[in-house]
Design a protein around this nucleic acid. Structure first.
Lengths: 219, 219
DNA sequence: TCGGAGGCGTACCGTACGTTACGGTTCGGT
DNA sequence: ACCGAACCGTAACGTACGGTACGCCTCCGA
């Protein structure tokens, strides 16, 4: 399952300067992809290579630090589940879907996923694990409580929250992420994202909504 | 949309020997990922580097040739749509889902997608386009006629075949592909694949099936 | 005022790898 | 038997880049 300690805080023990360096590295990563050089990072960050190596060990260390730094920036607050009715549940789901689509279509997410996928092949570091933890698994951790609350409120009907989540994930993402990663220019405006969010939510409610007392299957 | 001439036949104008070389390169690609060297390919294929460069130009040429060679091997026959009823439609959809899951979880597919994703960042070649054409878009081309036939037979109800296909795609794949690409060890046995195939098909039919005259939304 | 720590810039080293060059060998055609 | 083309194996070249060493500057505490 590869959940091995990949979500350590790591947000602190980073001085201002180091964060600035990592931001520069991140920007460069978005522009250049995995073929960014230590020299380029040093130049962009206006620091010396020696400092890079002292702080981050080696190239892989810098990369993982960069990925974790970006991950630590997107921590969001959990949703409140008081007074849950169908409208608020729907709104929550739509918001999750919309946020998620915005994230995976952002330049930095695409760049980060690209390098992580590339590195996942020859397992020198665990960039893939880090990205997974702060991407797909973080989303699950945040969404599952909402789903459980919806079930307890009698609005949703499912047996396994994990399965329900994965279906929602599929309905929202569809082919978007792989197409973006492979370089396809998918047009994702605010409008289409919003439309996809409500569509996915409606489809999810059609499959797992409990109000009619009938559902498709959950197997 | 990036459909630019990426599905040229390219299956011929390849001598036996060249195909063997590409097979060796493919095997090496699965083992080593994108950090395979020309020397390694030459050694594995028992040919000289000079030959590699004469045949394929440069490293990128060899890589694209390899990807296209693999793509040309998976051409499958279209499904027959005579005598379509709910049972046969269901079977077709389940078969598509099952085949698709088997493909994306195969070692070679994962390796190919990894290098394509990696190369999609710095666009020197169009590996991403090739993979996309022979992956996601090829599946769409094969599945859409089935969906259309299902609609004409009064079994399915949707407005846009593309949208319906993308939903099916999402229901089948969910988070599997990105997790595999990122190095997560997803357990995909024959049994789970089969189960996922029927689950996705049932969910799809629940959303787009026309028999009850009611569908969720198609937006 | 001074000394040392931290950090910048840069030159340098070693190596891996893409690419080229070259001698030797096989093989089909004449 | 001979010629040339295709090809194998390998050596060699050039370069890019990861990693290190060093000189100099700045700042800060004593």
């Amino acid at each position: 399952m590869l959940q091995a300690g990949a979500d350590i805080d790591t947000s602190e023990t980073l001085t201002e300067r180091q964060q600035a360096v990592l931001d520069a590295a991140l920007r460069l990563l978005v522009e250049e992809g995995d073929n960014l050089t230590m020299t380029a990072v040093a130049r962009r960050a206006s620091c010396s290579k020696e400092t890079l190596y002292k702080w981050f060990g080696d190239r892989d260390g810098l990369l993982t630090a960069t990925v974790q730094w970006q991950a630590s920036k997107v921590r969001v607050a959990p949703v409140d589940r008081k007074g849950l009715d169908l409208a608020s549940l729907t709104a929550s789901l739509e918001r999750f879907a919309s946020d998620w689509l915005k994230v995976i279509s952002s330049d930095t997410s695409i760049a980060l996923n690209r390098v992580a996928v590339g590195h996942a092949g020859s397992g020198k570091d665990d960039l893939g694990a880090v990205v997974l933890q702060n991407g797909r698994f973080a989303l699950a951790r945040r969404l599952k409580p909402v789903l459980e609350a919806g079930r307890q409120a009698g609005l949703l009907d499912f047996e396994d929250a994990e399965t329900a989540f994965r279906t929602f994930f599929g309905l929202v993402g569809r082919d978007v992420q792989i197409r973006l990663l492979l370089g396809d220019r998918v047009e994702l405006t605010e409008a289409t994202i919003g439309g996809d969010a409500v569509r996915a939510t409606q489809q999810f409610l059609a499959l797992f909504g409990a109000k009619t007392g009938r559902r498709a299957t959950d197997l």
